[in-house]
């Protein structure tokens, strides 16, 4: 999986306008919308790019922001792959009046929010102009964040220089290479592996919980899944290491 895949698999947040096909009381609406919080079943719509099999998706949060019949403004925080259009149709069914999605805007993709660091296309082209024609890269440098931000929502581990070079050459991350670790990593979690300088080295899948790392002090902590850093960045230190040992 490409690095961007870990972002695609992250939770998404939307604001959406639901149009009701019949009037209901605010209390009823609140009650029914509340029922959709948690795990729900969804069958992908006819016009979709995935297999149309019933699947489970989690609605992490759903909130009514405004209600003025026939429009309901909703904020939905959900697992990736949730169809908001479908969700609204289903809410309409349970309400007994029917509903459809009128408008949709994504306000968050994983860690990326719709706030001050959101850049407009116009702004980007201005920043490129200032860089290329005026020799001032400072605006563009603020707009382009280090790629590490792509996985800023993942649990993280910081490893020593020897482990960095071994992992970039395709090795799995072993416990002795770990310097700093997030306290709550669970076996099976995707884990972002960082160097002592803060560079993203790779993304792996945890093979043990954090507590086990502290107890065992050996073995494979994470199976390397996607190497990000070029193998030329750090010299092949583990060879020297092995020779000396």
């Amino acid at each position: 999986m490409k690095l961007i895949g870990f972002l695609m698999q992250s939770s998404k947040e939307y604001v959406t306008v639901m149009q009701l096909h019949g009037e209901v009381a605010l209390n009823t609406l609140k009650e029914v919308v509340g029922l959709f919080k948690g795990k729900i079943y969804q069958k992908p719509p006819v016009r979709s790019s995935v297999k149309r099999a019933l699947r489970v998706r989690e609605i992490l949060d759903i909130e009514i922001l405004e209600y003025e019949y026939p429009y309901v403004l909703l904020r939905v925080d959900c697992e990736h792959g949730t169809y908001v259009r479908k969700l609204i149709h289903d809410i309409g069914d349970i309400l007994g009046v029917g509903a459809h999605m009128r408008e949709l805007r994504r306000i968050r993709t994983g860690p990326f929010k719709e706030d001050s660091d959101l850049i407009k296309m116009q702004e980007l082209s201005e920043y490129v102009y200032l860089w290329r024609n005026k020799g001032d890269p400072s605006f563009l440098m603020k707009a382009v964040k280090p790629g590490e931000y792509i996985v800023s929502h993942l649990p993280k581990v910081i490893v020593n220089d020897v482990a960095v070079s071994a992992v970039t050459h395709g090795a799995d991350l072993t416990v002795p290479g770990i310097s700093v670790i997030h306290e709550k990593i669970r076996k099976g979690d995707p884990v972002a592996i960082f160097s002592l300088k803060g560079e993203l080295v790779a993304v792996g899948i945890a093979q043990m919980h954090t507590e086990e790392v502290l107890q065992t002090r050996r073995g494979v902590f994470a199976k390397t899944q996607r190497v990000v850093m070029s193998r030329e960045t750090y010299p092949p230190l583990w060879k020297k290491h092995r020779g000396a040992g």
Binding site: G110, P111, K113, E148, Y149, V151, S152, H153, P155, K156, I158, N160, D161, I178, S179, V180, I181, H182, E183, K184, F194, S195, L196, K197, G198, E199, T210, V213, L214
Partner: peptide
Amino acid sequence: GVEFVKKLDEFASLERSYILVKEFPT
């Protein structure tokens, strides 16, 4: 490295605690 990693957590609106397993030079 630790500072930067914490900055990433903050960007993602996450509060995470870390454990120092072993100190290494870089």
